[in-house]
Design a binder for these strands. Structure first.
Lengths: 185, 185
DNA sequence: TGACATTAGTACCATAGCGTTACTAATTCG
DNA sequence: CGAATTAGTAACGCTATGGTACTAATGTCA
């Protein structure tokens, strides 16, 4: 099952989700957003059967959940879950991918300074596909989202990588045409 | 206020939203999707204060709501509303725009056959901005979403327009790179 | 020590998409 | 019959994209 708890009257939905996530993780999620409300009507009318789902992300170096019975599972290797929980996970993953270009999710999963390869890895993990290196950097440069520092990090192998920091600058919104991503089927 | 009703235990959220919309409109909405759950904690813990909001669309030639106290308002000329209702409307409009390229919303607002100018008008209304005619048709042609009929419609003035029907064909998903639409501020 | 693997970063290029402008086509209005 | 109006297309330049290839700088290992 997914971590959950009943609502407390004195807190907002957002605060309740944050509290539940912190209880399960030990740390506050770097990003948290509502997925939606899920309910079916197969219960007795007197019983309320409604779930408000939230999705959050934590960096890969976040501590393992220690106290309770929580455990991590890869999205590609999920155990059998109750149908609604599986439905929530699918919607949460889709929401996360769709938010990636509009909310600074990736930068909150990284330390204050990071390499562009680190950043690209976060994008590739969330999107679930490889990205082209030159195109990624071109788009990043055009977006004025990062600025270089004068530090370089030496990894285990290969050429050292320059460190960048998240420093978005104002720019005008990109008014593109229509894309027709709708697919048949 | 927005049209609303309490949930009935024996129906799903989606069905309840559809019922409420039909009661208010007189017709079923051509598209309906959940916006999300809205709740604040300023009430007494014993009172549940939670709204599950849905957004729907109906064609412009839909009948006026007759029976009750409902009325239509332009998004650009809304009356003063309770804060949560205004919040719901903003989220609903944003959701609709973001779904336009992925869900065949526009085609459900049109009759079975329509002109490309009609279709473009729907897109312009929902997106709230003008679109370029040649680019719109190029993208539409590349997406294989419509096919021409052998009928032409004579409007009041100008050259007759060919009628098209919605007939999506299978094509592979467009795997583009990252866009970085995130704006500073 | 020197060849090789590895990672970072950039340059070049062909192609595709986009928006502007302009043009043709077909109809109604006066 | 000419002007206005709407539909539809062609041409062109600019930008974005993604592939390939290249250089740069380090560690590994014989």
């Amino acid at each position: 099952m997914l971590p959950w708890d009943g609502a407390r009257g004195e807190e907002s939905l957002e605060n309740a989700a944050d509290r539940i996530a912190r209880d399960a993780l030990g740390v506050a999620p770097a990003w948290l957003e509502q997925v939606g409300a899920f309910g079916n009507a197969r219960r007795h009318p007197a019983e309320t059967d409604l779930s408000i789902a939230y999705v959050g992300l934590v960096p890969v170096d976040a501590p393992e959940p220690g106290g309770g019975e929580e455990a991590w599972f890869a999205l590609s290797d999920l155990p059998v879950l109750p149908p609604r929980h599986k439905q929530v996970i699918d919607a949460a993953f889709e929401l996360t991918r769709s938010r990636l270009d509009y909310v600074p999710i990736a930068f909150r999963l990284l330390p204050p300074t990071f390499t562009l390869s680190d950043l690209q890895s976060i994008y590739e993990i969330i999107l679930g596909r490889r990205l082209h290196k030159a195109s990624f950097r071109r788009a990043l440069h055009a977006a004025w989202l990062v600025e270089p520092t004068d530090e370089w990090r030496t990894e285990q192998r290969g050429r050292p990588a320059q460190l960048f920091r998240f420093a978005p600058r104002r720019r005008r919104a990109n008014r593109r045409g229509v894309r027709f991503e709708l697919l048949a089927g």
